[in-house]
Amino acid sequence: MKIFIAGASGAIGRHLVPQLVARGHAVVGSTRSAAKVDALRALGAEPVVVDALDPDSVAGAVARAEPEVVVHQLTALSGPADFRHVARMAAATDRLRTEGTDHLLAAARAIGARRVVAQSNAMWMERTGGPAADESVRIEPHPPADAARSVAALRHLEDAVTGIAWGAGIALRYGGFYGPGTGISAEPDAVMAGYVRGRRFPIVGGGGGVWSLVHIVDAASATVAAIERGTPGIYHVADDEPAPVRVFLPELARALGAKPPRRVPAWLARLVAGEGAVSLMTRARGISSGKIKKELGWTPRYPTWRTGFAEGLR
């Protein structure tokens, strides 16, 4: 198929493009940076520079590509993390999940694309219920005030993509990424790994927030499955072991050769990072990926983060 990937130079795009090319697909990959054009070409994509917040730029690029499938992997999460200003840090990605989504959908509809696959995430599943949510669970309807804009942006993306009537709209709720090219890897410039090594990523309160994780290579292979044979709706993409922060974070520190994480009380973290960050560390729910395994035959290379941390960070 001819596939247009918006945000192809991002963490998942760098693994998704070569997997699609290896399976015989023709890929046009967009980036907002001309400096990344050569890297995209080396991965096997036809590169194009696009401003995702400019509807004319998006429409022109998609029209020239004439893809059968449009893939939305747009974020603005690279660079240093600023936990003292979480909402400000997320603002650019929020716009890509609202305005950027709308521009891509309009462009895809105009050229008759038959499928759209978009990146959502599973960090804001509704905070009531068991530790692992399936696809019937909604995004948290009453998030903390400092996370409300970002949660609303996720909701907008999912509703807009899965609501299209002219093609198959698929939203992928990924677990937290780790592995090469992400913030959690053995690479020296991996941002979150640097925080773990510096003991600046603490366990907050009791560390009871349950996170689902997924190796970036597995996230890409799940995306390939959705592109090739997914049906309209939502799929969860994560490994088989949702775990509380207090369980996986010390193991991550050990895998990175770091000292154990510090512990800080929730009230202090709330003062420094806000209520949204505290909710993620203390109240988050994991996800179950049974649907994508059953319907699309997806099997992760790293079925648990324990193996992934030991073998897959490099």
Rank of each mutant, 00 (worst) to 15 (best):
S221W: 08
V224G: 06
L213W: 10
G194P: 05
R200A: 11
P188C: 06
S212I: 09
V204E: 12
A269D: 00
R262E: 00
E275R: 11
A273V: 00
I203L: 08
L213V: 13
R200L: 10
D189G: 03
S288I: 13
T231N: 06
R270L: 05
D189Y: 12
T282P: 04
V237T: 09
A243W: 08
V245H: 07
R283H: 02
A225H: 14
A273D: 01
P244M: 10
I203Q: 04
S279H: 04
A243T: 14
M192K: 15
P244Q: 07
L268P: 01
V245S: 05
V224R: 08
I203N: 07
A284W: 00
S289N: 11
I203A: 03
I216V: 15
G194N: 02
I203P: 04
P202M: 05
P244E: 08
H236W: 13
S212G: 14
R197Q: 06
V264C: 04
D218A: 07
Y235D: 10
T231K: 11
A273I: 01
G198F: 04
A222Y: 08
A255D: 05
A219E: 13
R229W: 06
G290E: 15
L256H: 03
D239R: 13
V191L: 11
V272K: 04
H236R: 11
A273G: 07
A225K: 15
A220E: 07
H215E: 09
W211T: 09
F201I: 01
K291Q: 12
T223C: 15
W211P: 06
R200P: 00
E251L: 09
L268F: 11
G233R: 00
H236D: 12
P244S: 12
W267N: 00
V272S: 01
V196C: 03
L252P: 11
I287N: 05
T282R: 06
I234N: 06
E251R: 15
A226C: 09
R285N: 05
G286Y: 12
M281P: 01
G274Q: 05
A238T: 13
P202H: 00
S212Y: 14
A243F: 04
A255F: 03
S212P: 14
W211D: 08
A243I: 03
K259L: 14
G194E: 02
E228R: 02
R263P: 01
R200I: 01
K259T: 03
H236K: 14
T282G: 01
A219R: 14
G276S: 03
G208H: 13
L249F: 02
A222W: 02
M281H: 04
E251P: 05
A253C: 06
R200G: 03
